[in-house]
Structures are given as structure tokens and as C-alpha cells.
Design a protein around this nucleic acid. Structure first.
Lengths: 341, 341
DNA sequence: TTGAAAGCGATACCAC
DNA sequence: GTGGTATCGCTTTCAA
């Protein structure tokens, strides 16, 4: 039985081999001044030869700086197969590469009293990306703790509390406008709306935009044209019948997420109706699935990868220039024409 | 300007408040014996009151045990939007919850000489899940390093080297059989095959299975019926014309991945051919997209979530019973009937 | 059963 | 410039 128990090569091993103090090696490894170029070279060479890898945990422990990006998302056993999140994560991962950091994932179960700040302390996190806060509970205390302890973070989609924080979101008002103007250009006047999760930031924002703009643009006003989902496929499937069963059916339906639109699509097809002939359909997000369904889903694109990447950028910036203060980044949506309307 | 600089609450703060040595608190936090139940309770209460969170990095540093699961995947800027991987990750994340560990992601760029073992040392990783090794380079040295240093790990899909390691994969032979037997039952005798990435473990394995079984099952034998992709959408789109342009066209095509099947589907439709009437199509994997495309893609399901979860299980088991030795887990595939054949 | 002291692998500071 | 020493927050002997 092989029991090798090799100890890792530490900074001290390198120092001993080079005949210098380990603090000197540390200076070299951190690319600091005060070491003669010649010695520097020699130490680097020896370190490379020995295959020395600095221990990131020891480093974090003393310096209070981590080399990670912590992504915190609301507890959801299907998080990783919701492509909306994935596209965000792809952007975050690309940013990690850029800043040479490593991605860590935390699911936050607020019902168990877990908090963002706790996570940051437990793992010495100095940079956090908070995805889709669940506003069923008040988290402003938690957010303040992060701020008071100089944890750099950004939230993806807006923060609804009053504290100013880094955030990256899409211009929902503009997105809704793009959708409605297109529908109007196609002659629609009676447009149904499937609203998103009220405990998110996008849900209510898009709903407000819809209400405001549908008036402004002289669409038919009718309370019954608005039904309430939660962004999921199932909710689209569940709410769509309410619109189809109206005495006066809408000629087009705008769903606040692609998932709901696809759920709605399924319901519509099941009734033997044709899209877009009998009823036009438009989504929001441009998640992967939108391109695959039949007919292709016309939708409003959020630049999700970019949003993920910029969220990390903002947090890094807060770290580099703490005085600068938090930024709110609102990216432009884009109209994506496919076949559903 | 608020500059609070709160120091985190440490084990010493708890000890001081409780009037005991910090080592005693440590015993309590780690649920060890040798502390009177009464004292135990009192310490736990105080710790809770103070909101004490053990510092995981300090803990790992001294104990050489981490509370993480490191997922290592081959460098690929689109990794997170390849749903095949995500379904694996969903399973891994669920296992993380189960074992109360935190997920860390590392992309491995072998061209830069990065190694699995390096990562484990740098981050004090004790549990690793290796996804889809790229066999363009020899990694057996790397794998040996992991083994010699008691890093517990599993690879997802098989390990092609000669060392015995934990691995979780699907029974490719059985999967190919399910597909071919179904096609045969539908009267097909001339079946095209789009093969997967030769530098993976599934690619060659499925190809071998196809060759063996197509003989055994008396399908038409014709070298030209096999074309070579790499599992991606693009390769399916690229290779399909070669089959369509054959003097004697196959009546059915079996793609070694859903992505290739969907790429092929696109090509077929572009030619104005109908699926399955003009040509039947079957995929492999049952990734998310298979259900969305039109016509729905008939395919062979890999239990990807389960594979991810079991990979962690195996690694944990190696940790708990090191003598037991590595296990090779081969899960059963399943035939999923949709509309493409 | 409890506490004191050593040490994990690094950084930071202060002499020299 | 370079080296010694304290320190980060924790676990782990070992003595009392």
C-alpha cells in the first residue's frame, strides 16, 4: 500500500533551497519591489523548478483578500438548468478569467436565516455577485452589513432597497416599449400581458412599464388583459388559458419572460390555435430556448452574458476605487425578430 | 465617511465571552467529545448569540480538509451554455447541498500546462470532480499525482488511462443498441452515423458500439455512412450534407449527441426535406434542447443529473473508506420517443 | 474535562 | 535589499 504523504512544497522550502528568508520569497512571488533583479530571477527559477504553488487559503487568511468571485443565488434545485442564469454565469466566468479569480457558488436559503454577509465572513469573500434577490424578506440589514464591512459586490437586476449599490440590469421600460411598438406596427391593439414574479425587481418594473406604455400607445385598456405568473414555464402554461378564455380574446400576448412565453405557446398549440396567425406571441430575455421552439420566439434580448461580466467589473472597480461609490448600470435591450409574431 | 472596520467574530471572542479556552470552543464547534453537555450548550448558545461563523479557510489550512467540491472542466468559453454540462452540474450542486460543501469551478487550460494536481494544492482541494477530460494530451502523470496525494476525485465519463479511478458514465453500448433496435423496428436498414469527439471517452466508445452493433444487427455496411463530428451543433450542421449527398442516401441518421442531431436537423430542413418522413433522426444525451426543437428529437437519455450527483458520492466514499478502492459506475441509458423518428 | 502551546502557509512590518 | 518575527483563525496534541 502506497502511503506517500508528500507534504506540499511551501514558501519555506523554496526559501531554504535558495538560501534566503521566506519573507523574501514572498516579496518575489507578489511582484513587489525591494528585491534585486538578480535574486528575483534566481528565486523565480527555483520556485518554478520545485513546482511551487502558493497556498491561496493561507494567503487569504493573512491578507484578508480572496482570489474568488462568489456568486450567490436564491435556493432553487433547478437553478443550473435555467438558462437565464447560465448565460449570466457564463459572463461571470469570463470575467473571472479576466481577473484571474475562481468562481464559487453559494445558494442562499433565506428561510433558514442564511445571509449574504454570513457567507462572506465564513469564506473570507471580498467580491460577491448577487443574483436575483428574493424580496419576500427584507434584506436591507444584510446589504448594510456587506457595505459596512467593505465587501465589494454587485447585484444583478436592480436592488429594490434604498441603499445605493452596484447593480446591472436591463432597461425594462425600453424593452417593453420595443415589444409593444412592434406589436402595434403589426396592427395589434388588444394585447395580453403575462406578468413576472412580483418578488423580483424585473417583474414589477416590467409590469409598470406595460401599464404606462399601453396607455401611452393607446392600446385597449382592460384589467383582464393582465395575468400574473412568476417567470416560470409552468406559470405561463397556467395563466395563458385565462387570456384565451376571455370573452374578447387578445390578438397578441406579451410574456415578461421567454419561459412563460414558451409555456403559453404550449397551451396555445394544445388548443389547436396557430401562432402567430390566431394569436401573436412575444417574450422577454432571449434565453437559449427561444431559438429552438417552433415557431421561433420573437423576443426582447437581454445581454445576459454582458450583464454577468459587467457585474464583476463593477465590483472590481469598487475595490480599486472605493471612493467612487456604487454604480447603476442599465444596459439596452434589443428586439429579436423570429416567427411568433 | 463610515469606516467601521469591524473585525469578524472569531473563536477567541466566543471563548472570552464564555470564559473558556478557545480550544474548548473548537471542540464544541466540531462536535467532539470531552466537553460536558452543560458547557457545550452554553458555548453553542453564546456562539449563536454572537453570530459566530467559523472561518473555513483557517479551518482548511490547519486540518488540510476543505469543505468544497471542485469541479474542473476543460477550457471553453461557452461551457456554461452547453446544457449537457449544466445538467451534470445541477446534480453536482445537489450533492454539494447533501454533503454541506460549496461548489468551486476551475477551467483547466492544458495548453498552458495547468494540471489537476496543481489546482488541488493551490486551493487545498480534497474532493474533485473532473468533467470530460481532453485526451489530446497525456494526463496520466497528473492523475497519479492526485492519487498519490490522497485527493479524492471522480471523473465524469470514463477515464481512458490505465489507472483505476472513480468514474461515472453511461452504458454507451446499451444506448447505441436502444437507438439501432428502434430504428430497425421502424424498418430502417441503411443508417448514417455522425460520430462524436475522438478526444473524449464517449466519442470513440459510441463509434465502436455503432460499428459492432450495426454488423450484429445486419444493417447495411458502408464506410461512407459514418461521418465525423465533435459533438457540437456546428459539426452536425457541417457533416450532415455528406450523408445527404451520398448516391444512396441513408433513411435514418443517428447522431452521437443531441447537439449534432440538432445541427443536422437544421441542414435537413434547409434542404426542404421532412423529418422523419424523408429522413429519420435520432440523437444521444437528451439535453434540454431535444424537447424544444421541432420535430421533437427522439434520443437516448443519459441520466446527467444523477451522474453528477453520483460522481460526488463516489469521491466522498473514497474519502470515508480509502481502502475500498475506486469504483466504475455505468448507468443505464433510456430511450426517449419524440417525433423525429 | 479543560486549557496552554504549537503550528498550518502565507503576508506585513520593522529592524539591520 | 534582506531577514526575523508577529500574526491571521483555526485544529490538535499534551499536561494538568
Amino acid at each position: 500500500m502506497k502511503r506517500v504523504e508528500k507534504r506540499s512544497i511551501t514558501i519555506k522550502d523554496v526559501a531554504k533551497r535558495a538560501g534566503v528568508a521566506h519573507s523574501t520569497v514572498s516579496l518575489v512571488m507578489n511582484e513587489r519591489e525591494h528585491v534585486s533583479p538578480k535574486l528575483r530571477e534566481r528565486i523565480l527559477k527555483i520556485a518554478a523548478e520545485m513546482g511551487y504553488q502558493p497556498n491561496m487559503l493561507a494567503r487569504s487568511l493573512i491578507s484578508k483578500k480572496s482570489s474568488t468571485v462568489a456568486v450567490v443565488f436564491p435556493e432553487n434545485p433547478h437553478f443550473f438548468t435555467i438558462t437565464y442564469f447560465l448565460m449570466l454565469i457564463e459572463g461571470i466566468q469570463n470575467a473571472c478569467k479576466k481577473y484571474d479569480r475562481v468562481l464559487m457558488f453559494f445558494s442562499l436559503d433565506q428561510t433558514k436565516g442564511e445571509s449574504y454577509y454570513q457567507i462572506s465572513r465564513k469564506w473570507l469573500i471580498d467580491l460577491m455577485v448577487i443574483i436575483n434577490i428574493d424580496y419576500t424578506r427584507d434584506i436591507s440589514r444584510d446589504i448594510q452589513d456587506l457595505k459596512n464591512n467593505n465587501i465589494c459586490f454587485s447585484v444583478i437586476t436592480k436592488y429594490r432597497g434604498k441603499e445605493k449599490v452596484n447593480s446591472v440590469s436591463v432597461d425594462n421600460f425600453e424593452g417593453v416599449r420595443l415589444a409593444l411598438e412592434y406589436l402595434i406596427s403589426q396592427g395589434h391593439r388588444r394585447v395580453g400581458y403575462i406578468s413576472g414574479n412580483p418578488n423580483s425587481s424585473d417583474g414589477p418594473e416590467r409590469l409598470r412599464a406595460f401599464k404606462t406604455l399601453s396607455k401611452q400607445l393607446n392600446l385597449e385598456q382592460d384589467e383582464e388583459l393582465i395575468v400574473y405568473g412568476d417567470f416560470t414555464f409552468e406559470s405561463g402554461e397556467r395563466e395563458m388559458p385565462k387570456l384565451l378564455d376571455l370573452k374578447k380574446r387578445p390578438t397578441a400576448v406579451f410574456a415578461a419572460s421567454d419561459y412563460m412565453a414558451i409555456g403559453a405557446m404550449r397551451t396555445i398549440k394544445a388548443r389547436g390555435l396557430s401562432i402567430p396567425k390566431d394569436i401573436a406571441l412575444i417574450g422577454f430575455d432571449n434565453t437559449l430556448e427561444a431559438a429552438y421552439v417552433e415557431p421561433g420566439l420573437t423576443t426582447i434580448r437581454q445581454p445576459l452574458q454582458e450583464m454577468g461580466e459587467r457585474a464583476v467589473d463593477l465590483a472590481i472597480q469598487s475595490m480599486r476605487e472605493p471612493e467612487a461609490g456604487p454604480q447603476t448600470l442599465v444596459l439596452k435591450p434589443e428586439f429579436i425578430k423570429r416567427q411568433s409574431c
